[in-house]
């Protein structure tokens, strides 16, 4: 079963993330992924995450696919105009990549090349629409394609974002434009996540709840301050603050497990953004009862 089939089967799906390096030293990341491939159903490959220049997500996705791991190719609208975006989608297809996660992308000024020209020719919604069009054999101006790609399109949604209504509205638009699954921003508040899921359940699109492993109380506070839609409750911050440095992974794992257990009944799967703590993923899953 591939990622799509697994989601359709109703099985709880687990995905994780790979951030390609700034440089060519990709193999350690691939090895790490291979180490947990039995626990994880698919791997997201980030596309110049945070607008910082990195190795490309397309090449990395291909390296995973070659090794029998299932990639989710992330593509942002920041760096390419509509020609390049369509072309890269076709490239992904011929490289054996089916899963595509479409994101608008962070603004260039937030990354390490603030002088760069931001493109934003398309946005996530329009790119989803364009990708759907490619699957129907047409490029966005209606020209016939010689060879038609097939994708399993995904998008992101931020449940904690205010006003939530706006996210839901955009989620609907994304579904309309062709998104077949969603990944969420990190979830720390199960009550509000539950109410969000109740709202979006009728849409019928599977949702993978987002998990970010907390590394410290400082990180939690930083995220609360700077990351849109993230609200880490004080109890978790206090737990992290109270833990010794060596005990922090253990505490973090227990928090993640608590959240995952809570989410299991609410959504179709879990997306773990480990941010360098890939090695703890098996522990997290074990603690969550997988």
């Amino acid at each position: 079963m591939n990622f799509e089939e697994k989601l359709k089967s109703g099985k709880m799906v687990i995905t994780s993330e790979i951030g390609p390096p700034k440089g060519t030293n990709i193999m350690p990341h691939i090895k790490e992924a291979e180490g947990i491939k039995d626990k994880v159903d698919a791997f997201n490959v980030t596309d110049l995450q945070s607008s910082v220049m990195h190795l490309g997500s397309l090449a990395t996705s291909r390296l995973l696919a070659e090794r029998g791991l299932e990639p989710v190719f992330q593509i942002t609208c920041r760096d390419r105009n509509r020609l390049a975006l369509q072309s890269d989608l076709l490239s992904a297809s011929v490289l054996g990549i089916r899963n595509v996660l479409v994101i608008t992308g962070d603004h260039t000024v937030l990354g390490d090349h603030p002088q760069a020209k931001p493109v934003f020719d398309l946005d996530s919604v329009s790119l989803l629409k364009v990708a759907s069009g490619l699957m129907k054999g047409k490029d966005m101006v209606g020209n016939e394609l010689d060879g038609i790609p097939e994708f399993f399109l995904g998008a992101v949604v931020n449940p904690g974002y205010e006003p939530q209504e706006l996210q839901i509205m955009k989620m609907e638009q994304k579904i309309e434009a062709g998104a077949r699954f969603f990944q969420t921003q990190a979830v720390y508040d199960l009550t509000s996540f539950e109410s969000f899921m109740k709202r979006v359940l009728p849409f019928g699109a599977p949702v993978l709840g987002g998990i970010v492993l907390l590394k410290s109380a400082g990180m939690a506070k930083f995220m609360n301050k700077n990351v849109a839609g993230v609200n880490i409750p004080d109890k978790y911050i206090n737990m992290m603050a109270a833990a010794d440095k060596k005990d922090r992974p253990k505490v973090s794992i227990s928090i993640a497990a608590e959240l995952i257990k809570g989410m299991k009944t609410l959504c179709s799967g879990i997306h773990i953004m480990s941010l360098g703590w890939e090695k703890y993923i098996p522990d997290v899953l074990e603690a969550s009862g997988f």
Binding site: T108, V109, Q115, A116, K117, P118
Partner: peptide, 10 residues
């Protein structure tokens, strides 16, 4: 020569 688009954005 490379343009600095920050000038415009900011």
């Amino acid at each position: 020569n490379i343009r600095d688009y920050r000038l415009i954005i900011e």
